[in-house]
């Protein structure tokens, strides 16, 4: 069963064609890792799924929610986009936690404001999620009092609070000190094992080897190559993929 379906997604910023007609389907419980050099369009692709960037053309479907570029009336479109977002967890490179709220309040925010859940119920849900990401003892800390790794785990718990059917990660460990990367990847691996559908933009090859069902290599706005981790990492067919893998290994 397809959870995400992208049809012919294009996106340009002025004369810069960042995405040139991307087609991609992600099955339920599938973990897809997207790699590629900077400027390849991988983050833009992820942001187009939830309309953080509006595609110029194409159709995005997540579950039952279908958003067509330029289609329908504006009001209806916005409502569909909100529904789609409520069912899609998004994790940012810079965490983007709400600095004026504690960890538990960050996680409660979505259920309370959007789902109109009672505060007690939302608090229990948030405490459970923070426990799940290993931060039961940090519930009442403000983001500024947490390390980057801890902040990113709170951000994952916040995304999970809406009980999404898919999680999108935009370079979730790129802003972290090396020693903090592992704790975030462990949380993500656990989620993958539980059957969460995930699309992860990352350079972490170890993570890709451990949990990815499919690796996608993007360059200059197109999907250059995709396949199992073994196929893409060990037997790349395209010259650009080979070059990129060489660059990552040498880094």
């Amino acid at each position: 069963m397809k959870v995400i379906n992208l049809e012919n997604i294009t996106k340009s910023f002025a004369d810069n064609h960042v995405l040139k007609g991307i087609n991609l389907a992600v099955d339920k419980s599938e973990v897809v890792v997207v790699m590629g050099p900077s400027g390849s369009g991988k983050s833009t692709l992820l942001r187009c799924i939830t309309s953080l960037e509006a595609p110029n053309d194409g159709i995005v479907t997540v579950g039952d929610y279908k958003v067509e570029a330029g289609g329908e009336n504006e009001r209806e479109r916005k409502a569909t986009i909100r529904k789609l977002r409520q069912n899609t967890g998004f994790v940012f490179q810079q965490f983007n936690l709400f600095p004026h709220k504690t960890a538990v309040e960050n996680v409660m925010e979505g259920p309370v404001v959007i789902k109109k859940m009672s505060r007690e119920k939302a608090r229990r849900l948030a405490e459970n999620l923070l426990e799940k990401v290993g931060l039961a003892d940090k519930c009442h800390h403000y983001p500024a009092q947490l390390s980057g790794g801890q902040q990113q785990r709170v951000a994952i718990a916040r995304a999970l609070s809406m009980e999404p059917m898919v999680m999108l990660y935009d370079e979730p460990t790129s802003a972290l000190d090396p020693e903090l990367v592992r704790e975030v990847l462990l949380v993500m691996k656990d989620l993958a094992k539980e059957g969460m559908t995930m699309v992860v933009v990352t350079h972490e090859m170890g993570f890709a080897r451990d949990v990815a069902d499919r690796v996608i290599f993007m360059d200059r706005g197109v999907i250059v190559e995709q396949g199992t981790t073994d196929a893409v990492f060990n037997h790349p067919k395209e010259e650009r993929t080979k070059q990129f893998l060489q660059d990552v290994k040498n880094a």
Partner: peptide, 25 residues
């Protein structure tokens, strides 16, 4: 601007994001 994006990613309307996240800060 990541604050607005985070709020809207949860599925908030622009008004909710403004009231709950942007204005208090």
């Amino acid at each position: 601007k990541g604050q607005l994006e985070a709020a809207e990613s949860l599925g908030m309307t622009y008004g909710q994001a403004l009231r709950r996240i942007i204005l208090p800060q």
